[in-house]
Design a protein around this nucleic acid. Structure first.
Lengths: 199, 199
DNA sequence: ATGCGCCTTGGGCATGTGCACAAGAGCGTA
DNA sequence: TACGCTCTTGTGCACATGCCCAAGGCGCAT
């Protein structure tokens, strides 16, 4: 066996290009990511991009899928380790404070959603990724006695993304504000009544 | 008085350019909207764009603000005419079936959100627009006895946008699936228990 | 050493881009 | 009729873009 050193370095450079692309998409917007900008960020010559990737669109697609599948893969283990529904939702929304709607991860998600409406292949891959996530979330919700777990999981996932979106335009939308309201989605009214009191 | 005919026609053309831009943004993406494409869609010469607008960015900003403020202005009158909370949420979500995540309006919203992270002036105008909407929604929620109306309005608005986003990647997310779950946000647990039964 | 395969470089080309500008068309006023 | 105002046209320019390609580097097997 023994992949040649050249091949190893090649794979490493390919990875740097993917990382650079994933950084640039949120910064300048999907269509504004250029071969030269990606190459410069990855510290390689401009021609290398089209050696490792068929086209810019292909590079962006692979970069986005890699990062998002990585980001989503974090949740299942976290969920399985958490005992109560409240605690888990708390964790989820605390993590949401890191994603303030202007950070690279949030924006990459949204850019990916938009790009998927114009790239059939990306649409299918993203669709599969999100479905896996919803299934994991739904089974976890079912274990904790939430009604209609599949539907709840779908709406909860959507709501979290919506909150990320709005947060960039509504600074008051901290997790402490969102959490009590979103908790109602899980269907237990008592924790809700206790948690609130001030506006 | 009598504005000259030229001026009238000028204003009309300016309007056509705004409409053309608002159509193109969802179709090809914010950064891919070019002066020539807008001019062609509006059936005018390429040079006209820079006569009526300072720059492409300025044209897109004005187009987006015009369309979104129009779209949001539809809701307050609908709300004030509706008696029950359930009926109103039903209306809202029925309207959501028209916005399936791949239609021009939904995509224009999302493109606007993204663009606002790179255009301070657009960010401020969109921020104001959404705040007005949230205030209207909150006062209506308060009238119908929802707890923490302001926070609930913020989360509900975000959730609706999130549902629009996800719907493009999750066809099963119809209003009949979303409505029962989202109804829990309003805080009454009884209607919820009655409405569900199947997954 | 020598040849081979992969990775890398830098430049080139056709095309598209935002924006500027001079020339003209239509219409109200004198 | 002649003038002035606004809107409109088409073209021009400097520059950026995606993608291509000939030439060179570097480690590995022979």
């Amino acid at each position: 066996m023994g992949l040649s050193r050249s091949a190893e370095r090649g794979a490493e450079v390919r990875g740097r290009l993917l990382v650079a692309a994933a950084q640039l998409i949120p910064e300048v917007g999907w269509h504004a990511v250029t071969t030269r900008a990606v190459a410069e960020r990855a510290d390689v010559g401009p021609g290398l991009v089209h050696y490792h990737f068929d086209s810019v669109q292909s590079l962006l697609r692979q970069a986005v899928v890699a990062v998002l599948s990585e980001a989503l893969s974090v949740f299942p283990p976290v969920l399985s380790e958490t005992a109560s529904a409240d605690a888990a939702l708390g964790d989820m929304l605390a993590a949401l404070d890191d994603y303030d709607g202007t950070d690279t991860t949030s924006l990459l998600f949204v850019e990916a959603y938009l790009a998927s409406t114009r790239d059939e292949q990306l649409r299918m891959e993203l669709s599969r990724l999100l479905e896996e996530f919803r299934v994991d979330l739904a089974t976890w919700l079912a274990v904790h006695g939430t009604r209609a777990p599949a539907d709840t999981a779908a709406v909860l996932a959507a709501a979290v993304d919506g909150v990320m979106l709005h947060r960039a335009l509504n600074p008051g939308m901290t997790s402490s504000v969102v959490a009590p309201v979103l908790r109602r989605l899980l269907g237990d009214g008592d924790a809700d009544a206790v948690a609130e009191g001030s506006g």
